[in-house]
Design a protein around this nucleic acid. Structure first.
Length: 483
RNA sequence: GCUCCCGUAGUGUAGCGGCCAAUCAUGCCGGCCUUUCGAGCCGGCGACUCGGGUUCAAAUCCCGACGGGAGCACCA
């Protein structure tokens, strides 16, 4: 075959995620969100990448709520389970099974005991500070020397509740001199007396991520694990555990850390604001949750292309939300009506205005989306910002005529001129725009905005795309999507 | 400090030994469409972190430096 043909093929394949390795025996993957709140834009990467691969290989995807007891800053929230499921459904991520870590404690106890019996783990009674210090210096504590019997005895005491929080933990025996300090005899299980929203106070010994996953990745028959680069060490721990147990587990694939520039808030921080009432709820735009993006009129398909544009690279990236907005614009622009909206309105009266009666304006500059009629009086409203900026100058009221702008404006001519064109409102209704920073921008909009229904998208000319949220008698509330 | 990962235009990304005077998207600038600071169309701007090596040939492989990130939690 001509070499050019092969070469060309090489050039054509592009922009797709790399192939998975070892897919002969099928593909089973899992997503493991922690239910402390709904999925946010950053979590979408985990969900979408998993979904893409499972769909490509015709595999299975499980949703496993990683709802162990967490920490004092990270607590499971009953409401979050449904919020997460809703978010996934909206994103178009399908899954084939749901599991809860909090249902599987007995399994982890059983495996922990097995590990102790083969001498792979020990119960340590050092304090957290002691443990940290020893880890730093590579010192083995006395508990490491305990016999298997002693460890089993202490483990039973842990399960029986004879220890308080922090008084005993189960640690894996790796190597206290391991070159990676993070790897030295990590903790597998610990005691927490906190109440769990699903299982209450039934359990007080909880596994840590690496231990519970070492067991479950194997038990659930996971073949490929897609996780952020922050969890590479957890891979090593899991592999280490599999080796001790003599079992095998999935392959790990990592992607770099993704940050959306505008979305700085962590889930737990947002949670605080939601609970305190500072935020309107989990769909407050400041949370950047999937729910909040939906409310702003961002389409799930836009999120998918946005996420997929990063591929599977291991570099850490910070992307402006502008990229997401560009995707959304492509999706909605062609069938989004245009309307006039003036924030911080200023009333002007037009002198010597010709009697032009009603005007008909196209709903879209290019697409055939119909027209609407507006009755123009000589009292109209323009945006406060435009008034300040152009006062005393000649401007054109878009689609109308030219005036010298002032409180009492003078009509000059009707023919189109190359002067600034601004939007205006004649028969005003109240419009409130919920902005991305949570503030509310008030202004007037044209009357026909009342005809929209919640979820409709509209572009306010020279202002931005918004999603209609509620329509009342003379008042409309919208959420700002993006410019 | 230690361990690991990453380093292509402003931001992301493709390329992974010759086709690269480097892809695409986004951004920015200009033009057109002649009434959006929108979209579309057209054109333009703009990058292989640096230094060695391997090779006939390197963005692509190796080594080093520099820069960035993550981990070193009884969080996930």
């Amino acid at each position: 075959m001509a070499p050019e043909l092969m070469e060309r093929r090489k050039k054509e394949r592009s922009n797709e995620l790399p192939e998975l390795k070892n897919t002969e025996k099928g593909v089973v993957m899992r997503m493991a969100p922690y239910p402390s709140g709904p999925l946010h834009i950053g979590n979408a990467r985990m969900a979408i990448l998993n979904d893409e691969y499972v769909k490509r290989y015709g595999g299975k995807l499980y949703l496993v709520y990683d709802d162990t007891i967490g920490s004092s800053e990270k607590i499971p929230d009953m409401e979050a389970y449904n919020l997460i499921a809703d978010g996934l459904k909206w994103l178009g991520v399908d899954y084939h099974g749901v599991f809860y870590k909090s249902d599987r404690l007995e399994i982890f106890y059983e495996w922990a005991e097995r590990l102790i019996k083969i001498g792979g783990a020990y119960v340590c009674e050092c304090s957290a500070e002691e443990l940290r210090k020893n880890r730093e210096k590579g010192i083995e504590c006395k508990h490491r020397q305990q016999s298997i019997e002693e460890n089993l005895e202490k483990w039973r005491k842990m399960l029986n509740g004879e220890y308080g929080e922090g008084e005993a933990i189960l640690r894996i025996k790796t190597d206290m001199k391991h070159p990676n300090p993070a790897f030295r005899d990590r903790v597998l299980s610990r005691i927490s007396k906190r109440e769990h929203p699903r299982v209450g106070d039934r359990y007080h010994v909880w596994p840590l991520l690496e231990f519970s996953w070492a067991v479950d990745d194997h038990l659930l028959g996971i073949t490929h694990v897609l996780r952020g680069k922050d969890l590479v060490m957890e891979d090593m721990m899991e592999e280490c555990l599999w080796k001790l147990f003599g079992i095998d587990g999935p392959e790990f694939i990592h992607y770099g850390m993704l940050r959306v520039k505008e979305a700085k808030l962590s889930k737990s921080k947002s949670g605080k604001e939601v609970r305190s009432g500072m935020f309107s709820g989990w769909d407050d735009p400041r949370t950047w949750s999937l729910q909040s993006l939906k409310r702003r009129g961002i389409k799930p398909e836009a999120i998918r292309s946005f996420i997929l544009s990063f591929g599977l690279s291991q570099s850490d990236i910070e992307v402006p939300a502008e990229n997401l907005y560009a995707e959304n614009r492509k999706l909605i622009d062609a069938d989004t009506h245009r309307r006039m909206f003036v924030p911080d309105p200023v009333k002007i009266v037009i002198k010597n205005m010709p009697d032009i009666g009603d005007v008909e304006l196209a709903n879209h500059p290019k697409e055939a989306l119909g027209k609407r009629k507006i009755t123009v009086k000589n009292e109209i409203y323009i945006a406060g910002e435009d008034f300040e900026k152009f006062r005393g100058k000649e401007i054109r009221l878009k689609d109308l005529f030219n005036i010298i702008l002032d409180k009492e404006a003078g009509f000059t001519s009707i023919s189109n001129k190359e002067i600034p064109r601004i939007q205006w409102v004649s028969e005003p209704i109240d419009v409130e725009v919920v902005m991305v920073d949570g503030t509310i921008k008030k202004g007037y909009g044209e009357r026909s905005i009342l005809d929209f229904k919640p979820d409709d998208m509209v572009q306010f000319e020279r202002f931005g795309f918004v999603r209609i949220d509620s329509v009342e008698e003379r008042r409309v509330r919208v959420y700002f999507a993006h410019p």
